[in-house]
């Protein structure tokens, strides 16, 4: 007799693997991105099953939501560039120089070896002994928050988290430099129904994002997840054309990012929310 939850786990695992294969095999780039987004959401579901709701939330909001938006933006830009030239299929521009079959085979064999090694290491690892949970539980009273993952992120490993905020800042600066002078594809015209939706959703997203930030102190949620929600606000504003990026605003935005990082250095957990907003 197999428990129903085990069947569910197996189905979920098979779905995840199938979706991962589909990401590599689908020819249409748009379909590939959509399948990738589904893959991210289904993995988030699996992570809930591994009793990691914080991580699932982060993966759904940042790993899938923000990444998906960035991917779609890239595809939009690609089609804009190809459309402007009026030639040259979309695939042609993303494709890399062809690689000899022998190299491909060697690569595949190499991947197989690494994966096999990973599997051997995973199966041969000693049975799960006590991890850090005892230590974390002991130190919890000193952290000032009630949720252990937040305590680890913002208190016990604050330097690590500071590093990741700096990485975000560096990424934003790098993207600005790379895209300097690049002609932007205009945001599409979305119509009145979309405007009505944005009118309703914008305020609620701000409040819910802030709630996620606040509740991170005692329950799953947190700065990065809330920050991703606030990033969605920026995206909605761009898509409704309520805000059209102007060169003059760049200095202001840069100042805000640096200030956000500085605020985090000063020890405020709220500084973390600034980072993801720019993506």
């Amino acid at each position: 007799m197999i428990a129903p939850l085990v069947i569910f786990d197996l189905l979920l695992a098979l779905t995840i693997v199938a979706l991962a294969v589909a990401v590599l095999c689908l020819r249409d780039l748009f379909a590939m991105i959509v399948v990738f987004i589904i893959f991210g959401l289904v993995s988030a579901l699996a992570w809930v099953r591994l009793s990691a709701p914080d991580v699932a939330l982060a993966e759904a909001a940042i790993g899938t939501g923000v990444t998906g938006a960035l991917l779609l933006k890239t595809l939009h830009h690609l089609r804009y560039v190809t459309g402007r030239l009026g030639q040259n299929a979309a695939r042609g521009l993303t494709a890399m120089a062809p690689v000899p079959v022998a190299v491909l085979l060697a690569n595949a064999a190499f991947c197989g070896l690494i994966t096999l090694g990973l599997a051997v290491a995973f199966l041969g690892a000693p049975a799960a002994g006590p991890g850090f949970e005892g230590l974390v539980a002991q130190a919890m009273p000193q952290s000032g928050v009630e949720h252990s993952v937040t305590a680890v992120l913002l208190n016990f490993r604050a330097y690590d988290t500071l590093m990741e905020v700096v990485v975000l800042l560096a990424a934003v600066i790098a993207v600005w430099q790379i895209e300097r002078g690049l002609s932007e594809a205009p945001a599409p015209v979305m119509g009145v129904v979309w405007q009505g939706f944005a009118r309703l959703a914008l305020p609620v997203i701000v409040v819910v994002g802030t709630y996620l930030l606040w509740v991170g102190a005692e329950a799953p949620g947190g700065a990065f997840q809330g920050g991703a929600m606030l990033a969605a606000v920026g995206l909605l504003l761009l898509l409704t054309r309520a805000y059209v990026p102007q060169p003059g605003h760049r200095g202001l935005a840069r100042g805000a990012f640096v200030l956000g990082t500085a605020a985090f250095c000063a020890g405020g957990p709220s500084g973390g929310q600034r980072g993801p907003r720019g993506l």
Binding site: L50, A58, E59, I62, G131, E133, R157, A174
Partner: peptide
């Protein structure tokens, strides 16, 4: 569960999104 790996994975997700943003740019 052990919260430390959870925090590590969240860090990883954020770093990955930064890397993805630069790669896509």
């Amino acid at each position: 569960p052990d919260p430390v790996p959870h925090a590590l994975v969240i860090t990883g997700i954020v770093v990955m999104v930064s890397a993805t943003a630069v790669a896509l740019a």
